[in-house]
């Protein structure tokens, strides 16, 4: 005997059935909206073409390059501004300002200067991540236990030792959270750079299939993006659990 059907399966099947019904016999049947079967067909074609994997690889390359550069800049910078009260207050307004400005608004100028290239995508990713990550790291450094620092000072420990044994450990969990959010954001911006700026990758796939009116392919590619998004967030959470096993997530 099979056990009861898991709710997840029920709701996914129900959603797909609703979509299929609405687009084949239902209210949306007369519009040119792709049904489940059409989308699935396009999905199979897409997943069996070499082109798809090249585009996927380009998206990943762009995301990883932007992510690594942004972390390489932001974590040291964050530690520096976190260590000095003057630096923290000096940068606060500027960093907060650029942190809340959505990267999408600068795309027109970035396309003008860099063109629809991979460098353009990488620049956008770095711009998106670097301010938030610096602030996050700085907050962690500043959160170090005051009593601990005071004690270290009394025992005449060097500034470097204070950083090494009090500041950095306190910044660890903050950095971990920032890295997790940054990884997901890097992937999103990598796709947006293609979709709006014409940079290589899966975003550009959607742009092209939309321009040529290949609606099932547009739907299939967006579907794939959802699956990739879930996969990335799972992988990042899993890696983090292994890497910093002492921290509850």
């Amino acid at each position: 005997m099979l056990g009861p059907v898991p709710p997840a399966v029920v709701s996914v099947v129900a959603a797909l059935a609703l979509w299929q019904l609405a687009t084949s016999v239902g209210p949306l049947a007369n519009l040119s909206i792709p049904s489940v079967t059409e989308t699935a067909g396009a999905l199979v074609t897409e997943l069996t073409s070499a082109q798809f994997y090249i585009r996927l690889w380009e998206t990943i390359q762009m995301a990883v390059a932007g992510f690594v550069i942004a972390m390489g800049l932001a974590i040291p910078l964050g530690v520096l501004i976190g260590l000095s009260r003057f630096a923290w207050r000096s940068t606060k307004f500027t960093f907060d300002f650029f942190k809340v400005i959505p990267p999408i608004v600068i795309i027109p100028i970035v396309i003008l200067v860099l063109g629809p290239t991979m460098q353009m995508g990488i620049f956008l990713i770095v711009f998106t991540l670097v301010f938030a990550m610096s602030i996050q790291t700085g907050l962690g450094v500043r959160d170090a236990d005051a009593v601990l620092l005071e004690t270290m000072r009394c025992y005449g420990m060097s500034t470097w030792k204070q950083i090494r044994y009090a500041r950095l450990p306190s910044a660890g969990p903050y950095i971990a959270v920032g890295v997790r959010l940054s990884a997901s954001a890097a992937l999103v911006v990598s796709i947006v750079a293609g979709l709006i700026g014409g940079a290589p990758g899966l975003g550009k796939s959607i742009l092209l299939s939309q321009a040529s009116g290949d609606d099932p392919r547009t739907f299939a590619t967006v579907f794939v993006l959802g699956v990739i998004g879930i996969a990335v967030s799972r992988v990042v959470i899993w890696t983090q659990r292994k890497a910093i096993f002492w921290m509850p997530t």
Binding site: I104, L187, V188, I191, V192, L195, I196, G203, I206, Q210, T218, V222, L225, G226, V227, I228, G229, I230, S233
Partner: peptide
């Protein structure tokens, strides 16, 4: 999990 901008198409 779908990037918000990618749902526009």
């Amino acid at each position: 999990s779908i990037p918000a901008v990618a749902t526009v198409p």
